[in-house]
Simulated assay, not measured.
Amino acid sequence: MARNATSPGLVTQRLHLIAAFLLTAGHCAFATPCQFEAQGEGRVAGIVDARSVRLDDGREIRLTGIEATASTKEALTSLLVGRDVTLRSTDDTPDRYGRQGALLFIGDSDTSVQAMLLAQGDALVSAEITDKACATALMSSEAEARRQKKGTWADPSAIKNAESPDDILAGIGRFMVVEGKVLSVRQAGAMSYLNFGRSWTRGFAATISKRTLSAFESAGMTLKSLENRRIRIRGWVEGTTGPRIDVRLLGQVELLGANEPIGVRP
């Protein structure tokens, strides 16, 4: 019986195909997060505020994915003034103030300016970026700064204790990070409440509207399952007698273990 033979040329061709596949697969597996579509380039002419810069062509750019701390504006000035940047985002539509939202990258860097600020402890993660890989990368940068007590995290009170509602209420109108144990979950009309205190009127609570609830359900999580769990909430503090944070985005909530520097987002 004659044996099937494979020509050396065909073997080489197959090896080249396999190598190309492995290179492509490796690139996909280790792709740098937050590399959204480029939405333009420019040189930073000045810093407008702690979250906005102005390019030399007059465009105003708002840094997405972060909230400012006391040191953000100074850090931005040091990092960006006079530097060439690339803007990356999923959408270049300006906001109502005419600002274009984007992640900024200096020169050919694969690391966003936002990630740099977070790693230095000069910013806090907001929850507006919904791309899972990018959001996770930003949270990891923040967690590393928190672990090393850099920047804002050098202050022990940077994370508020949900059992101290007066401390949280003192920061009304500010973006805060709060940790604590959910004692109960209640619903009143179209609003659900994650209660961290036994007093519903004075204790800290996170509010979740019915329209936001679907995001938790899509992630396979019921609010009731959060009872007796330690969680981290981030957002803008509001309220009168008792402090509240309104949860509008899934990423504002992290599930915590006993010693986790970074929580698990639903």
Rank of each mutant, 00 (worst) to 15 (best):
I159E: 05
W153F: 13
S184N: 15
G197Q: 03
T201A: 14
T222C: 11
P156I: 04
L169D: 02
D166E: 11
A133Q: 10
F204W: 02
A145H: 07
V178R: 09
A162M: 02
E128A: 09
E179R: 12
S157D: 14
G203H: 03
L117W: 07
W200H: 07
K210A: 13
A162R: 00
A206L: 06
D131M: 00
L183T: 13
I172M: 13
S199P: 01
T152N: 03
S140C: 01
G121N: 04
L223F: 11
S184E: 12
L117F: 08
T136R: 11
Q187M: 08
R147G: 11
A205M: 08
I129L: 14
S141K: 05
S164V: 00
R146P: 05
E128Q: 12
A219I: 10
Q187A: 05
A158D: 07
D155H: 10
G171A: 07
K149Q: 15
M176Q: 15
S126Y: 11
T136D: 12
L118V: 01
Q148W: 11
A145L: 08
L213N: 07
L213P: 08
A170T: 05
S164T: 00
K181N: 12
M139V: 09
A133Y: 01
S199A: 02
V178Q: 06
K181D: 11
S192N: 09
L194Y: 06
A215Y: 11
A135N: 14
E179Q: 14
L118R: 06
T136M: 03
G189Y: 00
A170V: 03
I172V: 14
S192T: 14
I129N: 07
A145E: 06
L194M: 05
M221C: 14
T152H: 09
G173C: 14
I159M: 06
M116D: 12
L194V: 06
G121W: 01
L194H: 03
Q120A: 12
M176P: 06
L169Q: 08
G197C: 07
S218T: 14
V182W: 06
C134S: 07
K160W: 00
I159N: 02
A190R: 10
F204G: 00
E142I: 08
Q114F: 05
R211L: 11
L194I: 05
A215T: 12
K132W: 01
A188G: 05
